Computed example of a mutant assay.
Amino acid sequence: MSYDVAALRRRFPALRAGIAHFDGPGGSQVPDAVAGAVAGALTSPLANRGTVTSGERAADGIVGSARAAMADLLGADPRGIVFGRSMTALTFDLARTLAAGWGPGDEIVVTRLDHDANIRPWVLAAGAVGATVRWLDFDPDTGELDDVAPLLSGRTRLVAVTAASNLIGTKPDIAAIAASVHAAGALLMVDGVHRTAHEPVDVRALGADFYACSPYKFLGPHCGVLAADPALLETLHPAKLAPSSDAVPERFELGTLPYELLAGTTAAVDFLAGLDPAAGGDRRGRLLASMSAVAEHEEPLRRRIEDHLAGLPGVAVRSRAASRTPTLLVTFDDHDPADAYRYLAGLRIAAPSASFYALECSRRLGLGDAGSLRLGLACYTDDDDVDRLLTGLSAFVGA
């Protein structure tokens, strides 16, 4: 493994501003190659997809390249890669489509660990057709998700679960959940938005029927991605315009795709594939090596932060699951976390405080809708960033 964080950081124009970024879970900074790809698409001949003009061929090539790139990142079939405005929008569309086949007596399962984008679309869709919603809880002391099996039955149609909590970092055992869900004859929807930025992903190995993520969390532009088996997508018939394609995956993509954002998405995946320069082979193999290198880089930084926070008076880390991402939720006995957010911002350290749309999780932790201070590491976080953060937090609590 050869991971040069100093060289990596030089590829991020935004880092020249001197801000220590611990806000990656809300959206990463973007490398020069991604910005260049977006600009290149917008400043080259571009038109609606087709095969006649150069602009049409360029658009078609951008879409095909982006599907292949995301398939390599996720271990998925490029024919099952769907693009949309956001993960939230894609999930709402999918929920409405699936719910068309549900009715009274059918059940779905959502968790209190999830971001609301993998809760509310399913709750609303179930409510519209009279289906029952069952809630899977987690232990607020450990952050561990409860066993899904007791909630499953022959009436279960879908289980929606996060691959990693965007608030406290918990990584449930998705493969084990998938086995239980499939044994009950149900489908599994996995929110991979947070997890995809931190480690290798293999959608097939996880057993996810649907896996959604957001490129802007892993160095790319603002759009959403849904991965599924194309054979499964063939069985679904979303509402669409009459003239639009009925082919898979196009039938799930409403309107004209944002070609410049897809070009940036491909560039982000290619950039990630090069994070371990020693890795060889095809892009999928290089991505597996590079994302493993990301995890190895972030882990000791996370431990440094946790060890330091353990010695600060009145400070608690609420991210305690045995398997978790390098994302820490921090609470204070005698301080408002919003004050910590503002204090750190004054030191040019970005570490926001909120519930970050994980309302059910925040409420279950006893933090209400306000949440608390979240510290998220990224592939470009270095020891100097961590030094600045720890010094700032120590000064904030008067240690």
Rank of each mutant, 00 (worst) to 15 (best):
D4M: 05
A6R: 15
A6D: 14
A7R: 14
A7S: 13
I19M: 08
H21W: 13
P25M: 11
S28Y: 09
V30C: 02
A37Y: 00
A39N: 01
L42C: 02
T43K: 03
L46F: 05
S54H: 13
R57D: 04
R57G: 10
I62P: 05
D72Y: 01
G75F: 04
G75Q: 07
P78E: 11
I81C: 06
G84R: 10
T91Q: 12
T91V: 08
F92D: 15
D93P: 06
T97Y: 07
T97M: 08
P104M: 14
P104E: 12
P104G: 10
D106H: 12
I108S: 11
A117H: 13
N118Y: 09
A128C: 02
A128F: 04
A131L: 09
V133S: 03
W135M: 14
L136R: 10
D139I: 07
D141E: 15
P150E: 09
V161E: 06
V161P: 02
A163W: 07
A164K: 00
G169S: 03
K171F: 01
A179W: 02
H182M: 02
A184W: 07
A184H: 06
A186H: 03
D191T: 09
R195Q: 11
R195K: 12
E199N: 06
A205R: 10
A205F: 08
C213N: 12
Y216W: 14
L226P: 00
A227G: 03
A227R: 00
L232S: 06
S244K: 10
P249C: 09
E250D: 14
R251G: 09
L262E: 01
G264F: 00
A267H: 01
D270S: 05
D276C: 06
G280L: 12
E296T: 15
E299A: 15
G314R: 03
L329Y: 08
V330F: 01
P337D: 01
A338F: 13
A340H: 01
A340V: 04
G346T: 04
G346I: 05
L347H: 05
A350L: 12
A350Y: 02
P352W: 02
S353L: 11
F356T: 09
Y357P: 04
L359N: 11
S362E: 06
D369V: 13
A370L: 15
G371A: 10
T381C: 04
D383R: 12
S394I: 01
F396K: 04
